[in-house]
């Protein structure tokens, strides 16, 4: 299943990616950012906040933005 994944930390990845069926947003976050706390990120699916057990669907647009970004 293909979704749009945008990660606004690090290199600012933004592209389509394939995930397994019945993947929850919490599971995707764990897969993509295994060492991070979800509480430190603004997570949106199709521009809306969703509960952590939300099951991703085909063509969903997932955006992950850190709540703290270090300026220099």
């Amino acid at each position: 299943m293909r979704i749009m994944y945008i990660n606004n930390s690090g290199g600012g990845f933004a592209d389509y990616m394939n995930i397994e069926e019945d993947t929850s947003i919490a599971k995707l976050f764990k897969q993509k950012m295994p060492h991070e706390e979800a509480a430190n990120y603004l997570i949106r699916v199709n521009r809306q906040p969703v509960p952590q057990d939300y099951i991703l669907k085909e063509n969903d647009r997932v955006t992950i933005t850190p709540t703290k970004i270090d300026g220099a």
Binding site: N8, S9, G10, G12, A14, I69, D70, G71, A72
Partner: peptide, 17 residues
């Protein structure tokens, strides 16, 4: 001074986000 935000900011603008 964007620091860690440098690349994500540019990508967001470039992609119209």
């Amino acid at each position: 001074c964007e620091g860690d935000g440098f690349i994500p900011i540019r990508k967001a603008i470039q992609q119209g986000r």
